[in-house]
Lab assay of single mutants.
Amino acid sequence: INASIYDEIQQEMKRAKVSQALFAKVAATKSQGWLCELLRWKEDPSPENRTLWENLSMIRRFLSLPQPERDAIY
């Protein structure tokens, strides 16, 4: 996982035409506020920051699903 995940998140929300609230809920079981802060600060993903790493790993797993599967989840 690297910093490009933040751009991938924004691209996916645009592509699927979903809100931050919906993306946060389905991709990371988090709130819109959490995702907003995540995208604002764009912390460097590092395994040392375990909570951030685990949350980004969950999002990465969601983004790695085939597009039709992600669309069905939304």
Score class of each variant (00 low, 15 high):
Ser4Pro: 06
Ser4Phe: 14
Ser4Leu: 11
Ile5Trp: 01
Ile5Arg: 00
Ile5Ser: 04
Tyr6Arg: 01
Tyr6Gly: 01
Tyr6Ser: 00
Asp7Arg: 12
Asp7Thr: 13
Glu8Pro: 02
Glu8Trp: 06
Ile9Met: 12
Ile9Leu: 03
Ile9Pro: 05
Gln10Ile: 13
Gln11Ser: 10
Gln11Val: 13
Gln11Pro: 04
Gln11Lys: 08
Gln11Ile: 10
Glu12Val: 03
Glu12Gly: 00
Glu12Pro: 01
Glu12Ala: 03
Glu12Leu: 00
Glu12Arg: 00
Met13Glu: 01
Met13Gln: 05
Met13Phe: 00
Lys14Gly: 11
Lys14Ile: 13
Lys14Asp: 14
Lys14Tyr: 14
Lys14Phe: 05
Arg15Cys: 02
Arg15Ser: 04
Ala16Asp: 00
Ala16Trp: 00
Ala16Gln: 00
Lys17Glu: 13
Lys17Arg: 12
Lys17Gln: 11
Val18Phe: 03
Val18Gln: 03
Ser19Leu: 00
Ser19Phe: 00
Gln20Lys: 13
Gln20Pro: 10
Gln20Asn: 08
Gln20Ser: 05
Ala21Asn: 09
Ala21Ser: 09
Ala21Phe: 05
Leu22Phe: 02
Leu22Val: 11
Leu22Ala: 05
Leu22Cys: 06
Leu22Gly: 05
Phe23Leu: 00
Phe23Cys: 04
Ala24Leu: 01
Ala24Glu: 02
Lys25Met: 04
Lys25Gln: 11
Lys25Ile: 06
Lys25Arg: 13
Val26Ala: 11
Val26Gly: 00
Val26Thr: 06
Val26Leu: 08
Val26Lys: 01
Ala27Ile: 04
Ala27Glu: 02
Ala28Thr: 10
Thr29Asn: 15
Thr29Asp: 09
Ser31Gly: 12
Ser31Pro: 03
Gln32Glu: 09
Gln32Leu: 03
Gln32Thr: 13
Gly33His: 15
Gly33Met: 14
Gly33Leu: 11
Gly33Lys: 07
Trp34Tyr: 03
Trp34Asp: 09
Trp34Gly: 07
Trp34Phe: 05
Trp34Ile: 05
Trp34Met: 13
Trp34Asn: 04
Leu35Gln: 00
Leu35Trp: 00
Leu35Val: 03
Leu35Pro: 00
Leu35Asp: 03
Leu35Met: 07
Cys36Trp: 04
Cys36Asn: 15
Glu37Ser: 05
Leu38Trp: 01
Leu38Met: 08
Leu39Glu: 05
Arg40Gln: 13
Arg40Met: 10
Arg40Val: 09
Arg40Lys: 14
Arg40Glu: 13
Arg40Cys: 06
Trp41Arg: 12
Trp41His: 15
Trp41Leu: 14
Trp41Glu: 11
Lys42Trp: 00
Lys42Ala: 09
Pro45Leu: 00
Pro45Asn: 02
Pro45Val: 13
Pro47Val: 12
Pro47Ser: 09
Pro47Ile: 12
Pro47Glu: 14
Pro47Trp: 06
Glu48Ile: 13
Glu48Ala: 12
Asn49Ala: 07
Asn49Tyr: 05
Asn49Val: 02
Arg50Ile: 14
Arg50Ser: 10
Arg50Thr: 09
Arg50Leu: 11
Arg50Asp: 10
Arg50Trp: 12
Thr51Gly: 12
Leu52Asn: 08
Trp53Glu: 05
Trp53Arg: 08
Glu54Val: 07
Glu54Arg: 11
Glu54Ser: 12
Glu54Lys: 10
Asn55Ser: 13
Asn55Phe: 09
Asn55Cys: 13
Asn55Met: 04
Asn55Asp: 13
Asn55Glu: 15
Asn55Arg: 10
Asn55Leu: 05
Leu56Trp: 00
Leu56His: 04
Leu56Cys: 05
Leu56Phe: 05
Leu56Arg: 02
Ser57Gln: 13
Ser57Val: 13
Ser57Leu: 14
Ser57Phe: 12
Ile59Glu: 02
Ile59Met: 05
Ile59Lys: 10
Arg60Asp: 13
Arg60Gln: 13
Arg60Glu: 08
Arg60His: 15
Arg60Tyr: 09
Arg60Ile: 06
Arg61Leu: 10
Arg61Pro: 04
Phe62Thr: 01
Phe62Cys: 04
Phe62Pro: 02
Leu63Ala: 01
Leu63Glu: 04
Leu63Cys: 02
Ser64Gly: 08
Ser64Thr: 13
Ser64Phe: 11
Ser64Cys: 10
Ser64Glu: 09
Leu65Asp: 03
Leu65Ile: 07
Pro66Gly: 07
Pro66Gln: 10
Pro66Met: 04
Pro66Lys: 09
Pro66Ala: 08
Pro66Thr: 07
Pro66Trp: 04
Gln67Cys: 08
Gln67His: 12
Gln67Gly: 10
Pro68Val: 11
Pro68Ala: 15
Pro68Tyr: 10
Pro68Cys: 14
Pro68Arg: 12
Pro68Asp: 14
Arg70Thr: 05
Arg70Ala: 02
Arg70Ser: 04
Asp71Lys: 05
Asp71Cys: 07
Asp71Thr: 02
Asp71Gly: 05
Asp71Glu: 11
Asp71Trp: 05
Ala72Glu: 15
Ala72Phe: 10
Ala72Ser: 12
Ile73Met: 12
Ile73Pro: 01
Ile73Ala: 13
Ile73Asp: 04
Ile73Gln: 14
Tyr74Thr: 03
